[in-house]
C-alpha cells in the first residue's frame, strides 16, 4: 500500500499556463473527489499521472520512483477517460481478454456480475456501443483490473439515473471487498458528496482545498434570517457569498460557528458540497 505523491506539476498549453503548481498526496485505500471548473486542467493532470502526456516540470512519485515512462508502476494505475484506444472492430469481451493479458489478471467473476447487472452486451463491438453503454463498458474494466489506483474521469457520462445509482453502490461494494484508491472527476458533485472521503479542489492552476469531506462540511453553513440578525451573527466569520430575498439574507459561511446557536434568531443549515464548490470557485464579482 503506497502513497502517490504529486509535486509541483506545471503544464502550459500554447501560451496558457493551465497547471501552475499542483501538489498533493493520494493516500492508499481512499475515495477522492477531484473537483474543478471546466478547463481547469483536471483531465490533463490525470493524463500526466497516467503517462499519457508529459508535465513541463514537477514529478509524480510512487514508492520513491517517478511514474513517467515507468511501465511497472503504470500497471498499478488505470485511467478511465473519453480516450478510446481499442482496435476497431474489437468486441467488449475480446477487450476484457486483451486487458487481462496486459495487466496480468482480470476479475472475471465480478465482471460477469457487473455485465449482468448493467445489461451490457459483451458481443457488441465497442465502436457500436451507445454513449451510456460505452461508459458502462469502461467502468467494468476499471473495477475489474488488478490495479491499486483507479482514476475515473467523468465516470457517469451518459448514464441514466438508475445506472448511476447502480454504479455508486457497486463502487462502494468493490471498494469494501478490495480497498483501492479511487479518484473521481465529475461535475455531478451532489451525487458523490457522501461517497468520497477526501476532496481536492483545483482552481486557477493550484490545489485550493485538500481536506477530509466530513471536516470540511462541518465548517460549511448557510445562515439565514433578517438581514440585521444575519449581519450580527456572521461578524468576524468568513462569508463566501450573501444572497437576498427582500429583507431576508442568506450568508454562506465557511468556518467554526459559535457554540450555542439555539437562542439566535437566524436559522443555520448545512451547505452542500456543490454550493461550497460554486462559491469557492465563482469568479463573478471579483
Amino acid at each position: 500500500m503506497s502513497e502517490l505523491i504529486v509535486k509541483h506539476i506545471q503544464k502550459k498549453y500554447r501560451r496558457h499556463q493551465v497547471l501552475k503548481n499542483i501538489s498533493f498526496t493520494l493516500e492508499p485505500e481512499k475515495i477522492y473527489g477531484l473537483l474543478g471548473r471546466n478547463g481547469v486542467g483536471k483531465s490533463t493532470l490525470l493524463r500526466i499521472i497516467n503517462n499519457r502526456t508529459f508535465a513541463d516540470s514537477g514529478e509524480v512519485i510512487l514508492d520513491g520512483q517517478s511514474v513517467v515512462d515507468n511501465e511497472a508502476v503504470q500497471r498499478r494505475f488505470y485511467l478511465m477517460s473519453d480516450a478510446d484506444f481499442y482496435p476497431s472492430g474489437m468486441k467488449a469481451k475480446q477487450a476484457f481478454q486483451w486487458l487481462s493479458q496486459l495487466y496480468g489478471t482480470f476479475d472475471w467473476t465480478y465482471s460477469e456480475h457487473l455485465v449482468a447487472a448493467f445489461g451490457l452486451d459483451v458481443n457488441q463491438k465497442i465502436a457500436k456501443l451507445s454513449t451510456g453503454y460505452l461508459t458502462i463498458f469502461k467502468l467494468i474494466v476499471a473495477l475489474c483490473l488488478p490495479v491499486e489506483f483507479i482514476f475515473l474521469d467523468e465516470p457517469v457520462l451518459g448514464l441514466d439515473a438508475n445506472n448511476r445509482e447502480l454504479f455508486y453502490s457497486e463502487l462502494l461494494s468493490t471498494y469494501e471487498d478490495r480497498p483501492r484508491t479511487f479518484v473521481i472527476v465529475t461535475h455531478l458533485i451532489e451525487e458523490i458528496a457522501h461517497l468520497i472521503e477526501h476532496v481536492l479542489i483545483i482552481d486557477e492552476g493550484v490545489v485550493t482545498k485538500d481536506c477530509d469531506v466530513t471536516l470540511l462540511m462541518n465548517q460549511a453553513h448557510v445562515i439565514s434570517g433578517p438581514q440585521t440578525a444575519v449581519r450580527d451573527f456572521t461578524q468576524g466569520l468568513r462569508v463566501l457569498a450573501r444572497k437576498h430575498l427582500g429583507e431576508i439574507e442568506m450568508a454562506y459561511v465557511l468556518g467554526e460557528l459559535p457554540r450555542d446557536t439555539r437562542t439566535s434568531t437566524v436559522s443555520i443549515q448545512q451547505m452542500s458540497l456543490q454550493e461550497l464548490f460554486v462559491y469557492l470557485t465563482d469568479k463573478v464579482g471579483e
Binding site: 462502494l172 469494501e176 468520497i196 472521503e197
Partner: peptide
C-alpha cells in the same frame, strides 16, 4: 453492517464507521 448501510445509502464506509 457498515457495508450494507454504505451500499444502500451511497455513503462512504469511513463515514458510516465513524
Amino acid at each position: 453492517s457498515t457495508t450494507e448501510i454504505s451500499r444502500e445509502f451511497k455513503i462512504n464506509p469511513a463515514t458510516v464507521l465513524k
